[in-house]
Design a protein around this nucleic acid. Sequence first.
DNA 1: TCTCCAAGAGAAAACGTTTTCTGACCGAAA
DNA 2: TTTCGGTCAGAAAACGTTTTCTCTTGGAGA
Lengths: 335, 335
Amino acid sequence: MARKSATGRIGIADVAVKAGVSHATVSRVMNGNFTVDPDIAARVRAAAVELKYQPNPVGRSLALGKTDTIGIVVPDLANPTFQAILRGLNRAAAEDGYRVLIADSFEVSSEEAILAGEARRRCDGLVLCAPRMSDAELEEIAPSLHPLVLINRTTAAAGIPSLVVDYGRGVRDLAEYLVGLGHRRLAFLAGPAGSASNGLRLEGLEAFKARHPQVDVTMLDGGSDFDTGHGAVDSVLASGATGILAFNDLVAMGLMSGLHERGVDVPRDISVTGFDDIPFARYTTPTLTTAAVPIAELGGQAWRELRALIRKEDHDAPGGRYQPCLKIRASSGPA
Amino acid sequence: MARKSATGRIGIADVAVKAGVSHATVSRVMNGNFTVDPDIAARVRAAAVELKYQPNPVGRSLALGKTDTIGIVVPDLANPTFQAILRGLNRAAAEDGYRVLIADSFEVSSEEAILAGEARRRCDGLVLCAPRMSDAELEEIAPSLHPLVLINRTTAAAGIPSLVVDYGRGVRDLAEYLVGLGHRRLAFLAGPAGSASNGLRLEGLEAFKARHPQVDVTMLDGGSDFDTGHGAVDSVLASGATGILAFNDLVAMGLMSGLHERGVDVPRDISVTGFDDIPFARYTTPTLTTAAVPIAELGGQAWRELRALIRKEDHDAPGGRYQPCLKIRASSGPA
DNA sequence: TCTCCAAGAGAAAACGTTTTCTGACCGAAA
DNA sequence: TTTCGGTCAGAAAACGTTTTCTCTTGGAGA
């Protein structure tokens, strides 16, 4: 009968006793060390199977100094973008035998640093997604979080790879596209004020305005979800714009829904564009013109960067800049 | 200057040396044990702050026999239902200071048991979401995973709380509703063959058919995503049904998109219903009639069940059955 | 036969905590 | 003055592994 340790679980000691060998030998056998006599190894394996021995990962982690786990900190798990990054990250990490621990800051930026630190200590590395904290704070804590990979944020701290989507370029491409269709009055339905990706979009729009002084671009306050778009119908109509650049696909969908309720036809009366190309964008009516970001791939790439850091490989060109790709669909048309 | 241990991190030993006390005393101070002289405690705290000491959770876990982490096993992280459960679970667990470790089986049911076992060993408890494994296998491994909470699956093994959504009831309600509108030919666009929740829906439909022998219900093969619905247009039209019960909202949306492309008007020509009431259901055109499941709440409840198990509280009425609630919207109308 | 070397297994240290046990010290009661 | 009891800090064990070090054994070469 299996003797149980204090915790009630079978430990390496139980196997050792059963097989009549030492702890060390059991450990060697379990780790495929070939300096063990085949007969003894077989005996140990038999004992392990019989006792249903499963190594305790916590003890293992302590001895090896690694957890085979990485952490991801996101501002909001409900956001499809972060969900996609998480998915890509988890898939890629799983292929290398790593697990993912979640930390959601629920958009409370003051908690982010503590949360990240705690997560980091339990893991071998960390992915920090679009942190809301200030540049100064990020730069200060970044070194203590190493190995660390940033997504949609950069920092001056050294040795921190950064994967960023070129939102500025994407929104500029969308604006150029609308102008090409003959639109002369555009409106930008902005995202959350503090958001770095919103800042990048604004920069892109500034560049656009510099090239097209004749085009009128109205800035409208916004947010990042359905309701934002749905609630922005009045201000959009009041702006007189015929081409609307929504912060993202969710906002665009909310807006289209609201416009539909008012009897405004998209794209005949107003063209609407989103951003992200979430899966649903293909299935709205009308289907949504947007800028596609290979977002799950971003998660996969984040893992590869992190893996290189964990393994201390120095690999070429850490970090990277992702170019969004225009998806022209039915929600946009001639002015 | 902070002396560094072999791993390069500051440990309790460094603080002890700095403050001129023993490990034990530092540990006591860090854990708010009041049997320590206030002067010494202050000295220890000062040393800890100066060295930026942060306790190593792995060492802590080993000593305490707990990780303050729970695991969740899902068949597919890309599925909005599981995302919502994860979100609810994570939020509720975070409020109690617990973290969530993800394990995605990618629908490979043969891997589920191993995955669950590995996840469990790193955590204090496990939530198993809609496992695809057989009843026999589930019953066999369930005891070894304790504390364990099941979602959308039950098992004969003792002491395992189970939170299930009454999909059968939901699909029956939807069917009754369509019949009430005058539909006499229905079609059910089924989900994945092995899925337990699909099984429950089928049971519900059987009950419905028993009550309405005059109604014709066609069964169509399906799946659980957009493309399934989109690709099912032909078979749906061929069935001659005027009321379509889609496996879930995603399938319904795909179907509506496909019907729209064919010029079939929903709900004038055909009524379509979904299941789940995902956030997007409110924003499709036409808005989607569906059965709402408080799915994120399910995640929260799963945490509370698990917490009770971890704390060894015996609480009343473990487990529970969730009744879907009809959301009548614009995708359904008179036959 | 003696020495040397290699192979292989056990003892013990290490990882970083918590906690029990032990012992020193001090004040109060006898 | 002695003893008892209580307080508080340090020593050491415990958690479950891995790994280094040490020791034994057997075989080969001189």
